[in-house]
Every structure is written in structure tokens, then in C-alpha cells.
Design a protein around this nucleic acid. Structure first.
Lengths: 209, 209
DNA sequence: TTTTTCGTACCACCATCGAGGTATTTTCGG
DNA sequence: CCGAAAATACCTCGATGGTGGTACGAAAAA
């Protein structure tokens, strides 16, 4: 066992302090080695290409692009990439999209370090690992209908405080169509009005502030 | 200089990985020493009482209570406590409340480590230190009128998707009064309608999801 | 190919919201 | 003790939002 080569880990996060913590943790394990770090999506893709890490820890929020997009880019170029998403929040939509895009793990940043090490080893061994609290939250909205692209777009406009007429102008559609979209959004999210739809959309990670 | 006793630092954060990063960073400095850590507000207060740190790094979001409340509790018991708030977000209201409650510094977690070290030294030396980007954001809303307790309460109800009549029932006031409150809220926040008021309230940290 | 989903659009109708104004009581700081 | 601010309440009225129903073309899935 001690002769095996260590698990080569790439850490992608825009918080230097957190990267520092991950580095200390990973390097303290005899069977792991942090081989590279990145703080942006572009850097992440470059580093991955150069280093071909065994396991990649990927933050969901990066300065230049969404972690999901990095995930998709990496999995497209390197289908066998083993990637664990790391995030502060628990919007179920983000989790769902990450898993669909091929993430092998999904961790909250406030989890105990042993949990992270455990997940790294499991994912390296080819398994998938999602903590129970995230899995259950995911199941809760499993049967929910998903908003379409257009609906998300409209919801964003609503969150900006635009009136139906303004949204219509901005999206080059009629006010009536906007109403239909909003009706569907409220039905799908179980919201009583547009305001609650925005609140739910934010809580579930469908839109961002 | 080398004979001086080091700056004794207490780190309070519910993210073990981040604490690990802070520990590594602080302990790498010859003039600093991390003497204790805490992951909850209660722990933080206990640790502070026991250790009397020179500088305390305090996360804004803790599992048991708000970082602001911890800050207030500490400053009440120990008026000379030198506390630096550390957070992921930039709601100006949080910053303002923290500074009013006597925080000596306010840092975002994605800042470079040298910045943190710098602030620790400055605060230890008795100075206040708020990074320019936070200060400017604060100034932007300096002249804004502040929402009253009641208005915040109403805004929370609005965010939950309640209609005016429902809010009236829940708060035991008339629907007309609710309208007046909402009118004032929109005026103060510069919102076009209730929905945008909620979005702004969330962005500025006036209400939480 | 047929069926379903999505986006588009229109209509009528009622509920709700928001603007504008006035007024009373309480509370709090000067 | 007085003035300002806050919370309460009522009124009117025009603007906006949300419900229900129908419809059609395109694209995607079956």
C-alpha cells in the first residue's frame, strides 16, 4: 500500500485561505498529493490539461465563469475526469445540474475535513459520493417540474423589478406571453405570486442575485 | 522586534477547511500565533473569555447565532476586544451594523492572505481597517434611509409571498398600514415594486433567504 | 409520422397593488 | 416639554398582476 503512487489532486477555488486549508489537509495524507491549484475557471482548465489530476475539487462560484461550466468543459474534453463539486450553498438546482454534467461528488464547505478526504478516496476509486443531507434535499425536488430556459430568463427579469410590459419589451415578446411564462413559473415553483417566485428561485439556486 | 510577544489570534468560523487555512497562514508568521479556534458563537464567547486574544477573526454566519450578535456580546463584556469580521458576502447593511457594533475590520474571504495579515497587524496596533471596495460600497448607501424594524418585518413577509391582506393578519394591523409600510420600503430602497424591494433587500443583506 | 413540449399570442375578468392625500397616537431625543 | 419620527388607519382611483380559456407553429421526442 505504501508503495502506491498518491492520489494527485487539483484544487480550484477563488478563496486563497480555503485553498490553503485544502492544501494542508490533502498534503497531510500519505496517499494524497496536491499537485496544482487554480483560482479561476480558465486557470482550472489549463491546469487540468497540463497535470491530468486524478481528482479535481471544483468550487461552484468562480470569478470568471460558473463552476458548472468549468465542469462541463472539463468533462467534454476529458470524459474520465473525476470531479468533486465544493460549495457553500445548497441550491438543489445546482446539485442536479452538477450531477447531470458528470460530477462524482458534491460537498458543502462546512463539512468536516475527514468527510472530504473520504470522498476524495471514494471518487478516486471510481465511486460516486453525495452526502445524505444533500441527497435528501435533492429528492425533495425530484418530482418538481424544471423551469425552461426562457422561464428562467423571465424570472431573472422579474427579480430585477421589471413590470410585465418592460419584460415584454426587453425580451421582444408580447406582454401576454410574459404573463403565460410567469404563470408557468409560479405553478412549477409553487409560488403564490411573482415575489415569492423570485424568493424561491433564489433559494433553490435557479437565479442568482 | 523579535523578542516581542506574538499577536495572539482567535479564529471563529464554522468551516473547518477555512480555519485550517487561517491557522496555517497565521502560524507561518513569526509575529503571530493562533491560540484558539471556535466553530460556533457560544464557543467563540467561551474561548474569548478563557484566552483573551489580541485579535479575533469572526465569521458573519455561524450555526448557532449571527456573527453580529457574537460581536455585540463580546464587545459588551470586553469593550477593548479587537475584532475583525470575515465574510463571503458584501451586504452593506451587515458591514454597517458590524462597524456600529465596534468591529475594527471587515474582510471578504476571497481576499489575498497578505491582506488578512496586514489587517490583523493594523487592528492589533489599534487601527481600523476596511478595504476600499467595501468602504466604497458602504458609502454608496451612506445617505440611504434605514428601514425600521417594522419595515424589515413587513419586507420579510413580502418575500414569503404573502399578500397585503395576509401580512396584515399576520402582523395584527390593517391592510392599509401594510401598504404604507411597503410604500416607505420601496421609497427607501429605490425599488419600483415589492418584488424588486425583496431582491434589493436580499442583495443588501437586509433580509435573508 | 404522430405526439408532446415550448414559445408565442390574444381575450375577458377580477383581485391586488401602488400613488396620493389626511389624520391620530405613541415614542423618543433634544 | 416639544417636535420629529414611527406606527397606525381610512379614503379614492388608476395601474398592474394573475386566472382561465383558446390557439398555432416549430422543434423535439416517441
Amino acid at each position: 500500500m505504501s508503495s502506491k503512487s498518491p492520489i494527485r489532486v487539483l484544487s480550484v477555488d477563488d478563496h486563497p485561505l480555503l485553498r490553503e486549508g485544502i492544501a494542508a489537509l490533502v498534503n497531510s495524507q500519505p496517499d494524497m498529493a496536491l499537485i496544482a491549484e487554480a483560482s479561476t475557471g480558465a486557470e482550472a482548465i489549463q491546469m487540468f490539461s497540463q497535470q491530468s489530476p486524478d481528482v479535481t475539487l471544483l468550487d461552484l462560484r468562480l470569478p470568471d465563469m460558473s463552476g458548472i461550466d468549468v465542469l462541463i468543459a472539463l468533462r467534454t474534453q476529458f470524459p474520465e475526469a473525476r470531479i468533486i463539486m465544493l460549495t457553500t450553498f445548497e441550491g438543489d438546482v445546482e446539485v442536479q445540474r452538477a450531477l447531470q454534467a458528470g460530477a462524482r461528488g458534491y460537498l458543502l464547505k462546512n463539512m468536516p475535513p475527514t468527510e472530504l478526504l473520504d470522498v476524495i478516496r471514494q471518487v478516486y476509486a471510481g465511486k460516486k459520493r453525495i452526502p445524505p443531507e444533500i441527497a435528501s434535499q435533492l429528492l425533495e425536488h425530484m418530482s418538481d417540474e424544471v423551469l425552461t430556459e426562457r422561464e428562467v430568463e423571465v424570472l431573472r427579469e422579474v427579480a430585477d423589478g421589471n413590470r410585465n410590459r418592460e419584460i415584454a419589451e426587453r425580451l421582444f415578446i408580447s406582454e401576454e406571453t410574459v404573463k403565460v411564462h410567469i404563470k408557468h413559473i409560479m405553478e412549477k415553483l409553487g409560488a403564490a405570486d411573482r415575489t415569492q417566485a423570485v424568493a424561491i428561485g433564489l433559494r433553490r439556486g435557479i437565479i442568482q442575485l
